[in-house]
Nucleic acid binder design. Structure first.
Lengths: 158, 158
DNA sequence: ATGTCTGCAAATCCTTTGCATTTTA
DNA sequence: TAAAATGCAAAGGATTTGCAGACAT
């Protein structure tokens, strides 16, 4: 089911308290209600060192404290509000991370163990400009790099 | 179910006969069997002006001539063999296109009507280099740009 | 001949929807 | 107290798996 997701270095966390406050502020701006399930979610997300799946968030929150459905719905609302960034990936799964404005970035994901590492920056501006030229508006993008991580390359049970 | 996918300009087709031959050749190299369902799939893919979903491929092939499951399985095998490129996208769907070596590219997808346009080139080399630096090997990536196409921007039934 | 594909049915996975109830603002 | 969020049960859609029979090499 849930894969390894081991992690060596920091990835998405940047300092949690402020980020939660910022998220709450944004929720209020958007007329969203600040409920305890959502606060729990924010806490977990702020503490996460890499993007989390709804399922992982569910487990991290205590599994029976929050309904998975609530997580999906709130994640959706937070995505719309720009509070979390959704990373759709292969096989229909998505991962979610707290947005830190000015820290847009992407990840490498190990195809074998699920480990995730952060990569600096993002080079989509040229492509988005091209899309704009074609008349497209409200552009967003998804991008993930896949590979085999060092550890899995070693222990070559392929 | 299946969205619009209108299309103005060429996207993935480059000349079909040779591409099919090349694909067949590659299948033989990979010790894959060249079956009639697969040939039908190649024909449809080679004629397609943009990436197709398994479902669309199924319809285009005559719906009852090929089993959807066969399409999924062959698409998977062809993806592994590098014969088709898989474009995983939001909401768990994937699109597939015949690979034309040296023509790697991505697309803009209209969030509203599903229209797809091709975008020139790809700027992931910097990120892939960063991933390689972290010890990742066998790198691949997914990337799609989403937006609202000109037509949908006009007829604003949002 | 033999290992690979195919088709059919059924399963699986992640995610979404419906609805009555609780909660927030 | 009105609008929004929650929890539970159930649906949904895309993709996958099991298995026996058919097919390419």
């Amino acid at each position: 089911m849930s894969q390894g997701h081991r992690h060596e270095e920091g990835c998405c966390g940047e300092g949690s308290g402020d980020r939660i406050e910022a998220a709450v502020l944004r929720m209020k701006e958007k007329a969203m209600r600040v409920t305890s399930p959502r606060l729990v979610m924010l806490k977990v997300l702020a503490a996460a060192k890499h993007p989390l799946s709804a399922e992982q968030l569910h487990e991290a929150a205590g599994d029976d404290k929050l309904d998975l459905v609530t997580i999906y719905r709130s994640l959706g609302a937070m995505d719309d509000a720009g509070i979390v960034q959704r990373h759709p990936l292969e096989r229909g799964r998505s991962l979610y991370a707290l947005v830190t404005p000015g820290h847009h970035h992407h990840h490498v994901i190990c195809r074998r163990c699920g480990r995730i590492d952060r990569l600096p920056g993002c080079d989509t501006s040229r492509l988005e400009a091209a899309a704009r030229t074609k008349g497209y508006a409200e552009l967003t993008h998804i991008m993930e790099i896949y590979g085999i991580c060092p550890a899995c390359t070693q222990s070559n049970h392929a």
